[in-house]
Amino acid sequence: MKIEMKVLLTAAVIGAFSLSGCASTMQYGDAGSAKPLTTEFGSSDLQQIAEAMVDSMITFPPMVEMTASRRPVVSVDKVKNKTMQHIDTESVTDSIRTRLIRSGKFRFIDRTTDAQTIEELKTQQDSGLVDKKTAVDFGQQIGAEFLLTSNLSEIKQKAGSTTDVYYKFTMSLKNLKTGILEWSDEKEIRKVFKRGTFGG
């Protein structure tokens, strides 16, 4: 009987250890993980949107034709966030802009750093520190040919223990001279959460 007890005790201890492998731990995760935790807008949603938009834009036939010989200059507008959530939408457009720049097809101007640019140019022009031959003059920047605009909306439905959230991200490339939308696409994401019978 004593041996039986010992075996059971050992089994219980080892069993507990093997279970504790799944207890609270701290570790690095995969930045590209697609594991949804909530129906809220998450990192994977951002990555999916950015990839879908860039893939669509650089393979759209008129865009392929236009970017074959030149790299048009584009400006990015703020995303109109029509969801009920606080989302860092600049992060979404940053991802899209980075991918488009890295594709080698487009060039961008960044209006968010204009204040720093003006300050730097003022220093170069007026402080007397900078050689006039190398100082950058005002009024030499290239104007953007296109404006990248986007919308993010959500439709949330809740019934009993199920929450269903539908996200739609729409992006368009507007020709600033003619006002024509040269390209547009949308990415839809649906996230469904079912609350279990026991807590959770």
Partner: peptide, 20 residues
């Protein structure tokens, strides 16, 4: 009992690993 105990431990360990 020992054999059964060992088997139970092995299964528990396997399940524990598979979970993660």
């Amino acid at each position: 009992v020992i054999v059964a105990g060992m088997a139970a431990v092995a299964i528990a360990a396997l399940l524990g690993l598979a979970g993660c």
